[in-house]
Each structure stands twice: as structure tokens, then as C-alpha cells.
């Protein structure tokens, strides 16, 4: 009797594919109705809070940055505390080109930002991703710190600690200018870039490549044993993730019209990590939920009661680490499984 090689009749195959487990896999990438919600909310926000569009733009950029981290950390399991390296690389790519009057067209600038960040991601990933755990954590931190020092040292080009102010950014499509007083263009531009990037990430995550990344996250040794070129695949993922972080950084530079060393800070890298974990990693929408909750709290709480904010955030992180291993969406999914079972299958 043959196990793996049994030729299957069409009827038998149809029966197998009708199995709930198979159906789940076949349908997993289908769009759900609630996936329209974040975008509807973003458009609603545009009309409802015209005074808060600067905050909204920052939020959209943070979502994109967290999304890029989710690809590396949530899906491939690359634990990094240095993702701001790529955010900063993208920001400085845009900033340097614009400040020195070389290139100011926004969309192509973003493409260049992605390219620069991807190049750094590829080069560092190629050597770093051999390591795991604390060593990898340290190497990502050091790479980021190295870039920050380099940006600081190249004072003549980067403005050093003071950064590059008043970046001249050309209008989008030659029509829609960035107005520093009204953030309408910035907001819609960032939203469009986020949407395109999100669709890209979503496709990637549900692709066979994305499944194999999940495999690497779940069991590295086994992935080697099924013949996957693990390091190469991690490097590809890290490079794509870096490119997206670069786009987020480029957006940040364009919409704020400045770049400074804070783009490459450990602060920024740790914050985006916290945001992603707060929302829930490895589930696409965690970046959205985390960024909204974190930035909203920070915006309204941190300015008034900075110490209470820090204390509360600390307590929250400790609680999440101890009890809710996958953030707000993780808690939601757990509650759904516990109380919404049955309906979930419908």
C-alpha cells in the first residue's frame, strides 16, 4: 500500500478539499467585510477632524512603520531592536536629495528611499541573520547606532544633530502641494502610500512565501529539515521589511519637511516594537490597532501627565508580556474563540 503517492480520483480530491481544515486554508486570503473598516475610519477622520490631520498623518506613517516590522518580526520571527535603521535610512535618503536640491519629486523619492533602505537591509541581513537571540538583538541595535553616528558625523551633509530643516518637496503629481499649515495633502498622500503598501504586505503574507516565513518563525530547525533555504529567505524578508520601513521614513521626512537624528533613535525602534506588540504581531491589523491606541494615549495623556503615562505604559507592557502574549488583537481573538465560537464558522 502506498501512502504519499496514491493517485487521487477527482471525487476523492473534492471531498478532501471540502474538509473544514482545507477550506480554511483555501479561503484564508479572502477579504472580509471588516477589513474595510480601518480605511473607512481613515477617510471619516479626514472629514471629521480637519484640525488633527497632522496627528493623523503621523498615525498613518506609524502604522506603515509598524507594518514593516510585523513582516520581519511577526511573520518571520526576526527579533530586532534596530528597525529604525531603515526608517532613518529612508528619511535621510529623501532629506538629503531634497535639501541639496538633487531630487524633490515625492513619489520617486519614496521609491529611492525604499531602495536605499532595502540595500542596507540586504547587506546587514546577509551577515546578521546567521545569528539568533541576544546576539541578533545586539547586532541590530549596533547597526542602527552605527548609522546614527555616521549621520551625526557627516555633519556637512546631514546637518548633524540639528538635522535638515525646511526640505523643499515638490507637489504630488505636480499639483498637490504640501502645505505646512494644512495637512490635507500630506494626510491623503500618506493614506494612499499606506494603502498600496498594505495591499503588498497582505499579498505577501498570504502567499506561499509568507507561509514559509511562518514556518521559519514556528520552527527554524524543522524548516532546514524540509529543505528550505532558511537564511536566504530570511534575508529576502528582512530586505522587503527594510524597504517598507524606508518608505515610512521617507514619508515622515516629506510630510514634516525635516529630518534629524531622532529618525535613527533606539527610542523610535523600541516604540515601534511596543506599538506592534501592543496591537498584536503576526496578524496584519495589529499595526493599526497598536498605533491608534498608543498614539492616541500618548497624544492626550503624555503631554499632560508624562510620568503617569510612562508608569501606565510600563504596567501595560508588563501585563501584556505576562498574560496576553499577543496584544489587543490577541485578547480579542481569544474572547472571540471563547464566546463567539459557532458564529465564527458562519
Amino acid at each position: 500500500m502506498s501512502v504519499a503517492l496514491a493517485p487521487a480520483g477527482a471525487a476523492a480530491a473534492a471531498a478532501r478539499l471540502a474538509h473544514p481544515a482545507a477550506r480554511t486554508l483555501i479561503r484564508r486570503h479572502h477579504l472580509r467585510w471588516w477589513e474595510a473598516l480601518p480605511w473607512a475610519a481613515a477617510i471619516g477622520f479626514y472629514f471629521a477632524f480637519p484640525a488633527y490631520l497632522a496627528f493623523g498623518t503621523e498615525l498613518l506613517i506609524t502604522v506603515l512603520f509598524a507594518l514593516s516590522l510585523d513582516l520581519a518580526l511577526g511573520y518571520a520571527g526576526i527579533i530586532t531592536l534596530g528597525h529604525a535603521a531603515f526608517f532613518g535610512a529612508g528619511a535621510y535618503a529623501v532629506g538629503l536629495l531634497a535639501f541639496h536640491g538633487i531630487w524633490t519629486e515625492p513619489i520617486t523619492s519614496l521609491a529611492l528611499a525604499a531602495l536605499v533602505a532595502a540595500a542596507i537591509g540586504f547587506a546587514s541581513g546577509l551577515v546578521l541573520l546567521r545569528t539568533r537571540g541576544l546576539t541578533l538583538l545586539m547586532l541590530t541595535i549596533c547597526t542602527m547606532a552605527l548609522l546614527q553616528e555616521a549621520a551625526n558625523m557627516a555633519h556637512d551633509y546631514t546637518g548633524g544633530f540639528d538635522g535638515l530643516p525646511n526640505l523643499p518637496i515638490a507637489p504630488v503629481f505636480g499639483v498637490f502641494a504640501f502645505n505646512p499649515l494644512y495637512d490635507n495633502t500630506q494626510y491623503l498622500y500618506a493614506l494612499a502610500v499606506l494603502l498600496v503598501s498594505f495591499l503588498f504586505v497582505r499579498t505577501l503574507v498570504y502567499s506561499p512565501f509568507g507561509q514559509s516565513l511562518t514556518g521559519i518563525r514556528e520552527n527554524l530547525l524543522r524548516m532546514h529539515a524540509v529543505g528550505a533555504p532558511v537564511r536566504w529567505r530570511l534575508t529576502v524578508c528582512y530586505t522587503i521589511s527594510a524597504a517598507l520601513a524606508g518608505v515610512a521614513g521617507g514619508l515622515w521626512a516629506q510630510t514634516n519637511a525635516y529630518v534629524n537624528l531622532s529618525a535613527l533613535d533606539l527610542d523610535r525602534a523600541a516604540t515601534v516594537l511596543i506599538i506592534l506588540i501592543l496591537g498584536g504581531y503576526g496578524r496584519l491589523y495589529g499595526a493599526f490597532v497598536g498605533a491608534v491606541v498608543y498614539l492616541a494615549l500618548e497624544h492626550f495623556l503624555a503631554r499632560v501627565y508624562p510620568t503617569a503615562w510612562q508608569l501606565g505604559l510600563g504596567l501595560l507592557l508588563v501585563l501584556i508580556a505576562l498574560f496576553a502574549h499577543n496584544g489587543i488583537l490577541g485578547i480579542g481573538a481569544m474572547l472571540w474563540r471563547r464566546y463567539g465560537r459557532g458564529r465564527a464558522e458562519a
Binding site: 486554508l25 502567499s207 512565501f209 514559509s212 529543505g227
Partner: peptide, 14 residues
């Protein structure tokens, strides 16, 4: 992995 699908990025695994 065996059938060589795992490198495909642009269509759903489903």
C-alpha cells in the same frame, strides 16, 4: 517546499 511553491510571493497559498 517540495513542489517548489514556497518562493512564490504574489499569489495566495490558498
Amino acid at each position: 517546499e517540495r513542489v517548489g511553491a514556497a518562493t512564490s510571493m504574489f499569489y495566495p497559498a490558498g
